[in-house]
Design a protein around this nucleic acid. Structure first.
Length: 481
DNA sequence: GCGGATGATTGAAG
DNA sequence: CTTCAATCATCCGC
């Protein structure tokens, strides 16, 4: 019953929407279906169908059931007119005891047959008008509406609606006031602001987001190309977001105005208080804001995808240049006994290799663990770099004017070797650099596999490698810390 | 396309 | 904080 009443209340709205331009109808029905929510009955979602019309008629039928003449005192639900309204249409209130009907089908409560026939004709007229209302042109419909408004039974219908509304507590529906702001929406807002999508100024936020991502991700400097691409994509997202937001706001205000006008107009034919109109507006705003939050969520997702695609360092991984790798390897193998560069050494390496300090740290971390894991594989590489270092040292002895030159010629790690030159050959058949590499390697392994000693280089040197001839003051700073 | 190499990330440990 | 160890994701040579 209550649902039918709701449908009745909406029916006029439905009727008016049917008269709208098609383009507007789509919007209105879309938003109304949202406004109604998923569990307010199915009739409304199947707009301007017979189901809907029938619901409206059924309610009217029920309201017109009282046997006594309608005087504005409201219906008596227990007595019906027993009208056969429409061929094929089921009476909605099946409880019509025969005892209450006269044998000729006229309800017993009617004051007179003629009066009853008049009423029946009136009702039939009204229902017929409603049934055919959607087949008419706008002008015709307006005329019919006017006729209905001026109908002599209209006040009775109005008061009946008032009573039903009061009885069913319809006016109290959705009476709950505005909820506090949704925390998730606040989070989305904050995120969009942080990403520079929802911010007031164009571009600044995006640049800030890029710089933030860069600083946190430790990206290499040569990724500025990606940044401009990222910025343009972010700007696209921002534009779409603002366009859509504007559209939603405009649609919201248009629709609100429209509904308010409709309700005001309807207040002439059915009880609609200004407070109810306000509440309806609030409901519409709430629903629109939920749509907006969906838009915000989608935008956030798009930004996240963009970020992961453009700014995630993993995706942007590039192998270091040959020169950089050579420099790092040189340092590593020449400090094989203690391949832990100090902050200063890292800084210098970073500068020389054109990478960041964190990349240097990563590289050494990876190198240590991978070297340790598979020493045999790196043996050849170790020998190669030991040879290079030895060669460099020899050259520096021969030509003291170029003391820092190395085999690679790319850059120097000044005097940094755990140099192998001073190591007395322990295996006569092998060249000195090899022995040096082995010695350094064994010390490195000692350190790696030692369990108790501290990681600090000083402790390690004290416990594992007493000052030896292998690196007599060779480490200018790196190994001494 | 596959598999190894490699740079980055993550979580635990100290 | 750094380092280790495991892992991921991409690169790159075959």
């Amino acid at each position: 019953m209550q649902q039918d009443c709701v449908v009745t209340m909406y029916s006029y709205l439905d009727f008016c929407i049917c008269r709208m331009p098609i383009s507007m109808q789509g919007h209105v029905f879309f938003y109304l279906s949202i406004a109604r929510g998923p569990h307010r009955g199915d009739a409304w979602t199947h707009t301007h169908t017979h189901t809907h019309t029938h619901s409206s008629i059924n309610v009217l039928f029920r309201m017109l059931q009282p046997q006594q003449p309608i005087t504005g005192n409201g219906p008596s639900a227990s007595r019906g007119l027993g009208l056969n309204v429409h061929p094929g249409m089921h009476p909605l209130n099946p409880v019509h005891p025969h005892s209450q009907h006269r044998p000729d089908g006229v309800p017993a409560g009617l004051e007179g047959i003629e009066n009853g026939h008049d009423n029946r004709r009136d009702i039939k007229d009204i229902l017929q008008q409603i049934m055919t209302i959607t087949d008419q042109s706008l002008d015709e419909a307006q005329a019919k509406k006017h006729a209905l408004n001026c109908h002599r039974m209209k006040p009775a219908l109005f008061s009946v609606l008032c009573e039903i509304k009061e009885k069913t507590g319809l006016s109290m529906r959705n009476a709950q006031e505005e909820e506090p702001p949704d925390p998730q929406l606040v989070r989305l807002d904050n995120m969009l602001l942080a990403e520079g999508v929802a911010g007031p100024e164009k571009g600044g936020g995006a640049a800030a987001a890029v710089s933030a991502a860069t600083s946190s991700g430790g990206m290499s400097p040569d990724s500025s190309l990606g940044h401009s691409d990222y910025k343009s994509k972010l700007s696209q997202i921002r534009n779409i977001y603002h366009t859509e937001l504007e559209k939603y706001e405009q649609a919201c205000s248009e629709f609100t105005t429209h509904v308010m006008n409709l309700l005001r107009e309807q207040s002439r034919t059915r009880p609609v208080s200004p407070r109810e109109i306000e509440r309806m507006v609030a409901i519409i705003h709430r629903k629109f804001s939920s749509i907006q939050s969906q838009l915000k969520q989608s935008t956030c997702e798009a930004v996240m995808i963009l970020r992961s695609r453009f700014l995630d360092a993993r995706r942007k991984r590039r192998n270091f240049s040959k020169q950089a790798t050579e420099g790092l390897n040189e340092y590593f193998y020449s400090h094989l006994s203690n391949p832990y560069p100090s902050e200063e050494a890292k800084e210098e390496l970073a500068k020389q290799c054109s990478i960041t300090m964190s990349q240097v740290s990563n590289w050494f971390g990876n190198k240590r663990i991978r070297y340790k894991r598979n020493i045999g594989k790196f043996q050849e590489e170790a020998n190669l770099y030991a040879m290079k270092t030895a060669l460099g040292a020899t050259q520096s002895e021969e030509s003291p004017h170029t003391p820092n030159s190395t085999g690679s010629g790319s850059f120097s790690m000044s005097g940094s070797a755990d140099c192998f030159l001073g190591v007395p050959p322990m295996n006569g058949g092998q060249p000195p650099y090899h022995m040096g590499a082995q010695d350094a390697q064994s010390r490195f392994l000692e350190r790696l596999y030692s369990t108790s000693e501290s990681r600090t280089n000083g402790n390690w040197q004290e416990q594992n490698t007493p000052p030896s001839a292998t690196s007599p003051g060779s480490d200018h700073s790196d190994n001494s810390d």
